[in-house]
């Protein structure tokens, strides 16, 4: 039987390792890895194929860079009621809980603010008036939605950026664990990691050191569970010596001052870990206190 992996190397690659197979591809504008502790090529290939299909599906559906996709439809409804499917409803329900638990700090309607802060070193500080105008369009509490419909004020734009990648990691992990319950696998999308199936000798995962990018500061051993990293190591800019990270406080309209450079949190699943990391970043100086109260393992780089 022809091995199918050769047919699909174009979009992603699958290489043999002594512990199993390493699958690599790109999605959500970040390098993605699937570590599969199993020796059969066709199973590894099928798992990788499932992971890529699911990751691309979520990206195409919720990326704010793709015209005409599901998110685009919602953001261009200018006030009209829109039909939503079950998956979108689940995400909105989760985002609402995060909004309430973080007293409004985590707000997925902060789309317009995101677009203002073009995060690359050459960007200038946006004028205060434009920030106020953008802030006026933000406010998750003004969105009405139920399991079938959503109605947003005109001009409001949702941005699932804060949760989509972690959600994709968990979805892929969930589906792989469901189809192959006894094959340990590690899903890693640009630092957001999930290991649904326990592995006897744990995976060794390197945590990036913000000062020296692309090489691991310290190594975490994970047998099961998830880990998410939130940080401005790549997306930040400095004006008059003040460093602005990519975490914007929706209430002030400005990036959070004194936010740590990066926060890594371990949790039961990637979405929870990611949310805690983002909320810690939003606490700015209070990041350490906040995470200590959550009694989760974490590491913060300042």
């Amino acid at each position: 039987m022809m091995s199918t992996s050769s047919l699909k190397t174009a979009l992603y690659s699958l290489q043999r390792r002594d512990w199993g197979y390493l699958g690599e591809f790109r999605a959500m504008a970040s390098p993605c890895e699937i570590l599969i502790a199993c020796d059969q090529l066709d199973i590894a290939d099928d798992m990788l194929d499932m992971a890529v299909t699911e990751a691309l599906r979520i990206e195409h559906k919720y990326s704010r860079f793709i015209a005409q996709n599901c998110l685009w439809q919602l953001n261009h409804a200018n006030g009209h009621k829109q039909l939503i499917d079950e998956e979108t409803w689940q995400l909105l329900a989760f985002a609402k809980q995060c909004f309430q638990l973080s007293d409004g700090l985590f707000d997925i309607s902060a789309g317009p603010l995101m677009e203002l802060w073009r995060f690359d070193p050459k960007a200038q500080l946006p004028e205060h008036a434009r920030i106020l105008a953008a802030k006026a369009l933000v406010g998750f509490e003004r969105i009405e939605f139920d399991s079938r419909h959503i109605e947003m004020p005109t001009g409001m734009k949702l941005d699932f950026g804060g949760v989509a990648k972690e959600y994709a990691v968990d979805r892929v992990a969930y589906e792989l664990a469901e189809c192959y319950p006894d094959i340990p696998v590690l899903v890693n999308f640009g630092g957001d990691i999930a290991c649904p199936v326990p592995k006897v000798n744990p995976w060794q995962v390197g945590i990036e050191d913000p000062q020296h990018l692309d090489h691991a500061a310290n190594v975490l051993a994970i047998s099961q569970g998830a880990l998410a990293t939130s940080g401005d190591t790549r997306r930040f800019f400095e004006v008059d010596g003040k460093r602005y990270g990519h975490i914007v406080d929706p209430r002030t309209g400005y990036p959070v001052v004194q936010a740590p450079r990066s926060v890594t949190v371990l949790g039961p699943n990637c979405v929870t870990a990611g949310m805690l990391a983002t909320m810690a970043m939003l606490q700015g100086q209070g990041a350490e206190d906040f995470l200590q109260q959550q009694d989760v393992k974490f590491s913060i780089f300042r």
Partner: peptide, 19 residues
């Protein structure tokens, strides 16, 4: 904020199961 913030990790984990 820091003082008021309560233990929300559990609530978050619960909420994410719905996904």
């Amino acid at each position: 904020n820091a003082r008021q913030s309560k233990q929300i990790a559990g609530a978050l984990a619960l909420a994410s199961c719905g996904l």
